[in-house]
Amino acid sequence: MAAKTKAQDIIDNNAVAVFSKSWCPYCKASKALLSEMGAKAYIIELDQVDDGAAIQDALQEITNQRSVPNIFIDKKHIGGNSDLQAKRSELKSLLQSAHAI
């Protein structure tokens, strides 16, 4: 339950939240795109925090997605890297409306 609360707090209190793993190439691609867009993203590397597995379980409950990256913009679930890349054309306006750039 604590992990679910922590995950929800991260989603609620950050314009852009990325649940990632440091070694994941899809996570790296998503973080690179957000960085390229100038997004101020809160990134948590689930493989580098003690409760990472529990947070990943909680995200599955919240979003029905277990894989990383698990991306939220303005508290809305975007999905993973392929979902983010597919939104490339509208990403700047999404980030602006979330006050993330």
Rank of each mutant, 00 (worst) to 15 (best):
A2E: 13
S22A: 09
S93T: 14
S30A: 14
A15F: 03
G80Q: 06
N81Q: 11
G52P: 04
L84W: 07
S97F: 08
L91K: 04
S20F: 05
A54R: 09
Q85A: 10
A17H: 02
L46C: 07
Q8T: 12
N70I: 11
Q48L: 08
L94H: 02
S67F: 08
D51T: 15
I11E: 00
I44N: 02
N14G: 06
I55A: 01
K87Y: 12
A17W: 04
S93Q: 15
N64Q: 13
A2Q: 12
R66K: 11
I78V: 14
A15G: 12
F72V: 07
G80I: 09
D9S: 15
Y26T: 09
L59N: 01
S20Y: 07
A53G: 11
S30V: 06
D47Q: 11
K92E: 05
S82G: 03
L91F: 09
S82P: 08
I73N: 00
Q48N: 12
A53S: 13
Y26P: 03
K76F: 09
K76N: 13
A3H: 03
D9E: 14
G38N: 08
S30H: 02
S89C: 08
P69Q: 07
N81F: 08
K75C: 03
H77R: 03
S20L: 05
N70C: 09
K40Q: 10
A41K: 03
N81A: 11
A17Y: 07
R66T: 07
S67N: 05
A3N: 02
